[in-house]
Structure formats: C-alpha cells, structure tokens
Amino acid sequence: MAEKKIRVLLAKKKIDVHGRGSKLLARELRDAGMEVIYFRFGTVQEIVNAAVQEDVGVIGVSIMTSGHLLVAERLIPALKEKGMTDVLVIMGGVIPEVDFEPLKKMGVHEVFPPGLPGETIADYIRERVGKARLD
C-alpha cells in the first residue's frame, strides 16, 4: 500500500498580499509528493479550524506584510486548545531573521527566509512531521 501522503495546510494571514512565494511553495511541496491544502487568507481561528477539519500534519503560514509575531502568539495557544499538539508549525515570507528565535520560543518549529528551494522545506517537513510537538 502506498505510504500515506503528508498533508500540509498552507495559509496566509488575513489580511495579506503577495502570493507568489506561497503559491510556488504549494506547487513544490506537491511535486515532493505532499498533499497541500492552499488556504490563502485566514484569521488565526480560521486557520486552526481548517487544520483540524483537514487533519493536517503540517501548518505553514506565509507572511508578507508583517504581523508574524502577533500571528504566532495567537496561533500556538489556539492549536493547543484544540488538542492539535502534534502538528508541525512553520512560517515563512518576509520575516526578519532577528525574529526567528522569538518565534521559536513561542512554539513555531521553524522559520524560513524567502526564496528557498521548496525541496529544502520538503526535506525539513519529512524529517520533522509526526515528531514535532507543541508543549
């Protein structure tokens, strides 16, 4: 039997602009054999609800117009509240590297700068999905 596909919810915060990066990543993760639910714009609550409904292993949030700290600060507790403690949470986009550590302290597992090859992110997901926890 074929191995179960990794399911990724790829979302942009509500409200944001510039979809090139996230759309490319959606395509590249599909190329890498993953199932991508491209959610586009969502409030934190909408992203969490979609993640629960779609039973995803990974949530990726793309941020192009700042607000990443606020999104993370809300997203992680909201996921825990829904009992989604085994989901891998990644962020990417225009996020300053000096904010990577603060984001990780909040519980985000990894943050990626813009323009990376999708494979780099796919490799990371394969390695960490199912193992990462939100405690």
């Binding site: 117009t65 700042s66 607000g67």
Partner: peptide, 8 residues
C-alpha cells in the same frame, strides 16, 4: 480583521 495590520 484589521488587527495587527493598521499602519504597518
């Protein structure tokens, strides 16, 4: 929905 985005 404007929260976090005003004037940013």
């Amino acid at each position: 929905e404007a929260e976090g985005n005003v004037g940013q």
